[in-house]
Each structure stands twice: as C-alpha cells, then as structure tokens.
Computed example of a mutant assay.
Amino acid sequence: MTPARQLLLFRLINLIALLALLGVLTGSLDLQILVGEQPCPLCLLQRSGMIGLAVGPIMNLLWGMRPAHYAVSILAAFAGGAASTRQILLHIATPGDPGYGPAFAGFHLYTWAFITFAVGAAGCAALLLFSSQFSLGDTGVLRRKGALRIATLTIVVWTSVYLIIIAVTVLPECGLGMCPDDPSSTGGIPTPAGFAGLLLVIFGSFAIAYLLDRRLPSDDE
C-alpha cells in the first residue's frame, strides 16, 4: 500500500470513530432535550469523557497522526470508564435496584458508556501498534481544503455547540454547585420541534464548517 493510501486509511479510521462518538453524543442530547431526562453528575462526567475520547481523533485529523493524540483519548476513556463503573456499581450493589434512566437493548446507558470507553481505549491502543502512520509526514487536514477538512470542522463545531447546549440547559438546574443525584425530568420538547432543532444544529454545524473551509488558508493554494 502506498504511503498516500495508508494515510487516507488512518484518517478514515479516525473519522469513522468520530462519527460513532458523534452518534452517541447526539443520542444523549436527544434523551435530554426531546425526552426530558436531565443528566446526573456521573452522567455529565461520562459525557465529558466521550468528548475527551473524541479529542484524540480530532487532533489526528487536524494536525497529523501522533502517539500523544491517541494517548489523550486513552486517558479520557479511563476517566469516563471510571465514572461509568462507579454508576454501574452503585446500582448493582442494591438488590432489586432497577437502575437509573432508560435501558437500550437490555443495558442502561451508563453500561453502554462503559462499553464505548472500553472499545475506544482498546481501539486507540491497537492503532498505536501501527507505527508506520507516524512516519508518513502527516501534517493534518487543517491546511488542506477538501471533504475531510469540512467533515472534521463540522464535528469540531458540533461538539462546541453541544458543550454550549449542555451548559445552557444544566446551569439553571445545577447552578455553580453539584447537580442533584436524581434530577427531575423536564418533560422534553415535542418530538417534531426537538427533532427539527437537532437537525438545525447538525446542518448549521456543516454550514459553518463549509464557510470556515472557504476562508481558512490552504497549502494547496
């Protein structure tokens, strides 16, 4: 395989991982905004871990493949996994405890979060074994126009919007102190309006990324 194809392969792997994490975070936002399930303190830690897990692939795509970037994701996975483990143990320690929040495919969301962190850490560790990616002279897509830069910037913008939404929705409930262990449901937004809002965020992120791609300098010019 030529170096160019190798580089494209590793970039696509990182992009696919980011899209998977984007799906998980979008699902959590859907649960919070549309269903009205407000996040507990451990839930917020797990969401933070998910965002940290995404930082490594984002850095790989923007600035090039580096072992340190994978290390950032692995550390975030351990931190998020610790929060997930804590929440799992809280509920299995009490006989008859139905668990917190809704279940999906037989598992509660914090169990799925633990699985996500475990897969993420293992995936990053496995990718570190392919040391050839670090000697390809990769400088990232930040200074190269194209679909990969637009896709990466879309994810960066969406993640930033996600953080803003979380801050805006959580601060009224938690203030500057600790969030309640069992926050009350807000009832959610009616599905058509909430779904339209999520689509607006996604397409808005893409539009901003497209404009950034047009304005950012490029080595191709």
Rank of each mutant, 00 (worst) to 15 (best):
T111Y: 06
P172L: 11
P102L: 05
I166S: 10
P190M: 07
A167P: 09
F107Y: 13
P183R: 05
G177I: 01
V141M: 07
I189P: 01
I189C: 06
W158F: 15
P102N: 00
G140V: 03
T154N: 06
V161Q: 02
V157W: 07
S184I: 13
A207R: 10
V161K: 00
F195N: 05
V157F: 01
T116H: 03
T152D: 05
M178H: 13
A103S: 15
W158Y: 14
D182C: 00
A121D: 08
T169A: 11
L136Q: 07
E173T: 10
A196G: 15
V141D: 08
V170A: 13
L128E: 09
P102M: 12
S205K: 01
A105S: 11
L176A: 14
V168I: 14
P172Y: 06
D181N: 13
I164A: 15
A125H: 02
I150K: 04
F107M: 14
L176W: 15
T111H: 12
S160Y: 02
S135C: 00
A113H: 13
G204I: 09
D181S: 12
G106T: 03
S132V: 08
C174F: 09
R143T: 01
V156L: 14
T111I: 06
P190R: 09
G140E: 07
T111M: 15
S205Q: 04
P192N: 03
G123Y: 12
L199D: 02
P192W: 04
G175R: 08
G146E: 03
F134G: 00
L127C: 05
A125F: 07
Y162D: 14
T186E: 08
L171G: 04
L142N: 04
A122L: 09
A196C: 02
G146D: 09
M178A: 15
S160F: 07
A147T: 01
T154A: 13
L148D: 10
A125C: 05
D181P: 00
R149G: 02
V156S: 03
V168H: 00
P180H: 12
V119N: 10
S132Q: 13
P172S: 11
G197C: 04
V201P: 02
D138C: 07
A207E: 08
F114E: 15
S131E: 10
S184A: 15
M178T: 13
S185K: 06
L129C: 05
G137V: 04
L127T: 12
S185G: 14
V157Q: 02
A167K: 04
I166G: 01
R143L: 06
S205V: 03
L148Y: 02
G146N: 03
Q133A: 04
S184D: 12
L109F: 13
P172G: 04
F134Q: 09
A167Y: 05
L148M: 14
A196V: 11
P172W: 09
R149S: 06
